[in-house]
Design a protein around this nucleic acid. Structure first.
Lengths: 215, 215
DNA sequence: GAAATAAGAAACTAATAGTACCTTATTCAC
DNA sequence: GTGAATAAGGTACTATTAGTTTCTTATTTC
């Protein structure tokens, strides 16, 4: 695979398996940037965060390291930008089925999906490289607690709806309980390295969350 | 600091700030191994997991890379061995104060302490490098769920004691609830990068765990 | 005391990060 | 349209670190 990359690099035309079709014009600005991020996204799914290199991304985007470094100073920043652009967003609208349990299940499935798409390896890689949480916090889908994420707002909305129906009493719910289900999802992703099963989501809702909030 | 290290390396005698006093005899076996692990432990607390290098450890132990590599094939394995030897163990005996809440607080403080000593950076570094959980699972203090850890056993013991006193009913407690407090501690360490406050431990016990188990 | 073992020492390859420099295509201002 | 500014292409370079290899020599073992 290394040999192939080098071949691609030195060759002017000719379509490889992982690269764009031959080009004549010189890309720049937004177009080039998109090509690089696309290449990074592909590379991420091909080789994973650990084995992703700037050089590899550059070659795949049919450009060179210097161009990438001009935009993103290191791997972590490049990957964050890539995730910001390509990671699927959780569903925009908050579930409202008239039943807290259903709403919770739907919400958590929606939150779990992007987390799984990124995968534990990438999250851990980013966390290990970027202890200054700011950067990783800029990816809404895998955001840290502390700030008010869309997910947290959705949780609160669902709970308020449930309160109106008399399903729960909110006055004694502190922030830790609100974020508990999402925290457990994140923990599950980080630790198990396996897809979050629907069974896990059910357990979080039925065995942990509902018993707490339903007084 | 780099210059200093190189000086230490080339110098035959003379005590640096971070190295053993001058030696005459050639160490080997257990003694040398201990010296290397000690050096790795010191290096870990000095420069952190990310910036720890095999070379750095070797120099600090007044030996050389090859000797280290003969024993541990890479950084992760060396650090795991170091933690196995030097990381403080949680208290051996299970609290039994006659009160579930007290027991829980004591137990969780004991579990949190070694986790904090390792620190998020090291745990994340190990997790990022060692996706084959087996290795990290071999450090009891930061062990993953799935296997029956000493902490889990302690939790169960405490709960059984509480059941005998009539404080809780155990029949409807699944494993996820048992491991919940410890999972939350681990999550907290990984995410916040800050020492676990006693307030956090109180919240885990009072706002989350007790409401679930006390029917 | 000889043979086996493992440490000490240093040199070496390979991968990657990140930088520097120069050439050339493209854009933009006039 | 022309010329200056900008940014991409391309390449070579330094520095760091991982991990290996090889040889010498101290120490243990039998």
């Amino acid at each position: 695979m290394d040999e192939q990359k080098i071949k691609e690099q030195s060759r002017v035309g000719g379509a490889g398996s992982k690269v764009d079709p031959p080009r004549e014009t010189r890309r720049r600005g937004e177009i080039l940037e998109t090509a690089i991020l696309q290449a990074a996204w592909d590379e991420l799914s091909d080789v994973g965060y650990t084995h992703l290199t700037i050089e590899g991304v550059a070659v795949r985007a049919r450009t060179n390291k210097a161009v990438v470094y001009r935009r993103w100073g290191n791997k972590a920043k490049l990957v964050v930008a890539t995730l910001q652009r390509y990671l699927p967003k959780p569903p925009r609208d908050v579930p409202d089925t008239g039943n807290l349990r259903n709403d919770m299940l739907i919400l958590l499935r929606g939150i779990a999906q992007p987390l799984q798409t990124v995968g534990a390896e990438t999250i851990q890689g980013l966390m290990a490289e970027y202890l200054s949480k700011d950067l990783i916090a800029s990816i809404p889908q895998i955001m840290h607690p502390g700030t008010e994420s869309k997910s947290t707002i959705a949780m609160k909305t669902i709970l308020k709806q449930a309160e109106l129906r008399g399903e729960v009493h909110l006055e004694n719910l502190n922030p830790r309980i609100i974020s508990l289900p999402i925290d457990l999802l994140r923990y599950e992703i980080l630790i198990t390295h396996e897809p979050i099963s629907d069974r896990t989501i059910h357990e979080i809702v039925d065995d942990i969350f509902l018993p707490i909030v339903q007084v």
